[in-house]
């Protein structure tokens, strides 16, 4: 996969990350270098190799479905950037 396929402006939109024009150009250049280095991975024949999502075989762990202590409402709101009437204040979603 050619590194030049990377379109930083488009990917930034996907990541919900605003970038300045300068940052976009800089990242475009720097990440092209990183991806060019990573092109090495295309050399390998990986047929029949299973992907490893984890270092150790992971299995689902379930706990008993019982209520337990969690944050209080006051605590949960303590780090909120904006809170009103004991609720998170969010930016308007519907017009």
């Amino acid at each position: 996969m050619a590194a030049s396929d990377l379109d930083v402006a488009y990917v930034a939109e996907l990541a919900r990350l605003k970038l300045t024009g300068e940052e976009t150009a800089l990242f475009q250049r720097q990440l092209a270098q990183v991806l060019a280095h990573a092109a090495k991975l295309q050399e390998l024949n990986l047929e029949g190799v299973e992907p490893a999502a984890h270092a150790v075989p992971a299995t689902n762990v379930f706990r008993a479905d019982e209520p337990r202590l969690s944050l209080t409402q006051e605590e949960a709101l303590r780090n909120a950037p904006r809170a009103v009437n004991d609720l998170f204040l969010v930016t308007k979603v519907l017009e």
């Binding site: 996969m1 396929d5 990377l6 930083v8 990917v11 930034a12 996907l14 990541a15 990350l17 990242f27 990440l31 990183v34 991806l35 990573a38 991975l41 295309q42 390998l44 990986l46 190799v49 299973e50 992907p51 490893a52 999502a53 270092a55």
Partner: peptide, 26 residues
Amino acid sequence: IILGTYVLSSGYYDAFYLRAQKVRTL
């Protein structure tokens, strides 16, 4: 974030992310 979003995005996932996970097995 840009690099990570890119390697997970449609069309590049297999070439980068999945491939990297297979290399991890090796």
